[in-house]
Design a binder for these strands. Structure first.
Length: 136
DNA sequence: CGTTTGACTACGC
DNA sequence: CGCGTAGCCAAAC
């Protein structure tokens, strides 16, 4: 899946979605992955297991200067995925705290409180990302 | 080119 | 809960 030229589209779709995450909210790699329809020949279960890694790959290649809030994406456990103590982890946490996102004593965000609900329907329609169930 | 690495996640202990 | 692991691919060396 996501074989070229689809990979490029996948990356750009990730960035588009991440750009929709409002300040003060966080999303997860898996949540973003679940918004992107798999290739026609891809089993959804497999997709769900593998795609989050590719979301991370896409995010690692995030273009600078395009106002993409990369720091609002954390993992499904509510923690920052960069190694603890790394400069990148510190930077991500700093940016999130500036927006009001709180971390507990173990460095975890309460996803119940801060998780993004997802893009609005206008965005989904514009990007042609509406899931089959939501069509019509 | 072959190898290693990776901003993940679900699942089993 | 926490830790280890499978999954199995594209970048980055």
């Amino acid at each position: 899946m996501f074989n070229p030229p689809n990979a490029k589209t996948f990356f750009e779709t990730v960035w588009e979605i991440v750009r929709e995450i409002p300040a003060g909210s966080v999303s997860s790699y898996g949540q973003i992955a679940s918004m992107i329809p798999p290739d026609a020949d891809m089993e959804p279960a497999r997709m769900q297991r593998l795609a989050p890694r590719w979301v991370g790959t896409a995010l690692r290649k995030t273009p600078r200067g395009k106002s993409i809030p990369w720091h609002r994406v954390i993992n499904s456990r509510g923690t920052i995925s960069f190694p603890a103590g790394s400069p990148q982890a510190g930077e991500q946490r700093r940016l999130l705290e500036l927006e009001g996102v709180e971390f507990d004593c173990r460095g975890r965000v309460d996803l119940r409180r801060f998780s993004w609900e997802g893009p609005d329907e206008a965005f989904l329609r514009r990007r042609n990302l509406l899931p089959p169930r939501a069509l019509g």
